[in-house]
Amino acid sequence: MINAVLVFNNNGQPRLTKFYTQLDTAVQQRLISEIFTLVSARPASSCNFLPLPPLLAPANTSASTAHNDAPSLVTYRHYATLYFIMISTSTESPLGLLDLIQVFVEALDRLFENVCELDLIFNFETLHAVLGEMIVGGVVVETGLETVVAGVKSQGRVAKRPVNEGRGGGLAQGIWAGR
């Protein structure tokens, strides 16, 4: 199952945090910063799987074998200014998770039309809603782009980013920029 979904930008500022287990706020922050430290040090050419951050590393390596409940996989994707991270157990497929992140981002793009970080900052509720259509309680419930978008739209109008925001281009640049 998926244990956590995180989105943060190039500076480590979180844009979405979703933990499928109840975790202390302080611990959440530590985990985010650990993962950010790992992920930000990686060149663009490296693969999209991270070693387990110190907080998640099994205490005893010999005991961790065949222990499927513990998270064992940290998958990430980098889009323009944002990192999308999924922490999961061994029951998820690593390549499948990469595709799942892609679906997530594509769904956001459909909802916001050329989505950028600003959209996600100002509409983080929608971000949660999209995720809620795809993953419930750590289990993937929907992978179809259309269904996800329709599900979110059925909950109400999706607001656009404020018009005057995003001057200077930086953040308003589409999330697909540079890909």
Partner: peptide, 18 residues
């Protein structure tokens, strides 16, 4: 005993399904 200790200690994000 160390082994059982390690078992006892749950990983941070783990959802125990035992």
């Amino acid at each position: 005993s160390k082994l059982s200790l390690a078992r006892g200690k749950k990983s941070l994000l783990e959802v125990d399904s035992s």
